[in-house]
Amino acid sequence: MPSRQRLWPIHVILAVGAAAMVAPFLWQLITSLQTTGETTSVPPHFLPSWQWSNYSQVFHDTKFAQQFLNSVSQTVIRVLAQVLFCSMAAYAFARLRFPGRNALFMLMLAVLMVPSQVYLLPQYQLVQNMGLLNTLAGVVLPGLFSAFGTFMLRQFFMSLPNEVEEAARLDGAGTFRIFWSVMLPLAKPGLISMGVLTVLWSWNDLLWPLVVVNDDSKMPLTVGLSTLQGEHLTEYPLLMAGSLLASLPMILVFLAAQRRITEGIALTGTK
């Protein structure tokens, strides 16, 4: 074990890194307590004039509570669906043998290579044909499944030992039984990591709900807050107060599931 003396440079580096990570949040907090004039002044004001009313103003200017609920339902539905569907597809790709498996898998991976803006229009028209524009169903539908989640869980299933599965098969378990009662419980760390990443993605998703939803009572928080931006003048204190409130649940998720998130990232080598 290295001695305390040799650890201090590492501590200095980590402290600088931590400060760099926390600074944007701190700046956000300071901005949220300023007047609009203070936020754009040069040189910047570091001490806010403590405009706590900005926070109540956010609730007045947007349907914050309703949009918070929308964000929560959008996220819960997407996470549950993705965990279920992606794990089933991932298990099939990892363990079942069927013709065209690799070709199908490559096709699915190809989805990961295409930027989402490209299929915005066709996806919109599909949802429109189903009559789901401006509904929660329309918002969540394309996010019930993800190529990324499937890829991530496939890698996880492939790392599990074959012996467990063989033992179950000898005991007379069918494929679904093996998947559901044996493999899924073993994949719990992977499922949690994937779930957490999905929560973060869904909570921050802006473009799709923005395009699909028109009523402010059906918007998630990301879209609702973006309507606070004016064409020539944006009240940054309000925007920052709203964003801070909106990111609180995610900060809590991160604190609670810190280890899983780092594991998840380490597991896939991607974000």
Binding site: L120, L121, Y124, Q125, Q128, L133, L206, L207, L210, V211, N214, D215, D216, S226, T227, L228, Q229, G230, E231
Partner: peptide, 23 residues
């Protein structure tokens, strides 16, 4: 009249998608 407010930055993305789809 149902007013639909879309922030300036995304207004044209949304309008172009909707216009192309007839909505």
């Amino acid at each position: 009249i149902d007013i639909q407010l879309t922030p300036n930055a995304d207004y044209w993305t949304k309008l172009q998608t909707a216009a192309a789809s007839g909505t």
